[in-house]
Amino acid sequence: MDLELRTTEQSDYDAIATWIEDATSCSRWAGPLVPFPFSARELPELLSVKGGSSYSLYDSNNNCIGFGQFWVVKQGAVHLGRIIISPEARGFGAGRLLCNKLMAKAMQEAGAARVTLRVYRDNAPALSLYSSLGFSIIESESTDNLLLMSASNAE
């Protein structure tokens, strides 16, 4: 699969907005502060994170098929968030490629040796993916619903 990671543009937000079907999926993806419904024009501001970077994954036909962000949480550590793959691209390895490319970009830009992310305990596909990428659960910083996961020198 030949996929490219690029800085997110407004046309990407237009596509991403169509992937979120309801308030529950919006909250689980973007957090409780992002209202639903929203307009694609609002997404750049709604998803803005101080010191954060947003990237989109493009397929060989130049279609946006994925999105993710990262931000520095402390010296030497970055946090990945709001990772999503278009419904049509799920199940074909795009999530793995997005995560690998996003981790590499985050570690390169931030000079980080550690990457963290949060995942819902009941999101078995994502939990399996992140575990296979070398992330380990940190129960002491997890909640009943959300797991904090960490990887060092992501592979």
Rank of each mutant, 00 (worst) to 15 (best):
M1Q: 10
M1D: 13
E4W: 12
R6S: 03
T7Y: 00
Q10T: 04
D14T: 02
A15Q: 08
I16T: 00
W19Y: 08
T24Y: 13
A30D: 05
V34I: 14
F36D: 02
P44S: 02
E45T: 10
L47E: 06
V49L: 10
K50N: 13
K50Q: 15
G51T: 06
S56W: 01
D59E: 05
D59R: 05
S60Y: 08
N61M: 14
N61L: 15
G66N: 09
G68M: 00
W71V: 15
K74H: 11
A77C: 15
H79N: 15
H79V: 09
G81Q: 14
G81M: 05
P87V: 13
E88A: 14
G93K: 11
A94W: 03
G95M: 03
G95D: 00
R96W: 12
N100F: 07
K101N: 08
K105N: 04
M107H: 08
E109L: 13
E109D: 10
E109M: 09
R114Y: 12
V115K: 05
V115P: 02
L117M: 12
R118A: 14
V119P: 05
R121N: 07
R121E: 11
D122A: 03
N123E: 00
N123I: 04
P125L: 11
A126W: 01
L129P: 04
Y130G: 08
G134R: 05
E139F: 09
E139H: 14
N145K: 12
N145I: 13
L147N: 10
L148Y: 09
S152K: 12
N153L: 08
E155C: 12
